[in-house]
Amino acid sequence: MIVQALAFYAFSAVAIASAVMVISSRNPVHSVFYLILAFFNAAGLFVLLGAEFLAMILVVVYVGAVAVLFLFVVMMLDVNFVELRQGFLQYLPIGATVGAILLVELVFIFSAWAFGGGTLAAPAPDPTEIANTHALGNLLYTRYVFAFQAAGLVLLVAMIGAIVLTLRQRVGVRRQKIARQVSRARAEAVEVVKVPTGQGV
């Protein structure tokens, strides 16, 4: 148990520290790397909870795809973050005050935490009996099938949105038209010209 507790505190501490670094580091590339670190620690926490499937998904999706995408964006766009931060100090006092108040209040509220009635919506199944992935699948495609399908629609909208907002048919851009290339007949591609000798073309 002590090992688990130690691991929990280690993962948590690193996760929080790296989250702070994400928003405070000057170099945006560093920020993204700290983000990846935070993700890894979160995955570690999942493993501790026995949710190894979620841990793997977190690593694959967030670290492997999302964070890398961020990195691309940050590097390609060359945003001047220093300039963006210029107003930061100006708003810091009031922002910090409001944030602090909210934090204190929430702490106060959570100190009154009592898990309502001891009921759990769906208690985690015993990992020795049923595989983690299997259990999730059982739940996702039954009890939460509605949410699952609807989430699919959300993703569809995101896809459509990305296309609508960014895809442009630029005029004057030469594109490869594969269908035309494939269906091209010899007659229209090559013209055989008989050149009488001595007259030139």
Partner: peptide, 20 residues
Amino acid sequence: IYHYAFAIVVGVVVFVTWYL
């Protein structure tokens, strides 16, 4: 945008404080 967001946060703080 950040003014707007700030307004939202202030609203939240006011309500939470009220109930506390």
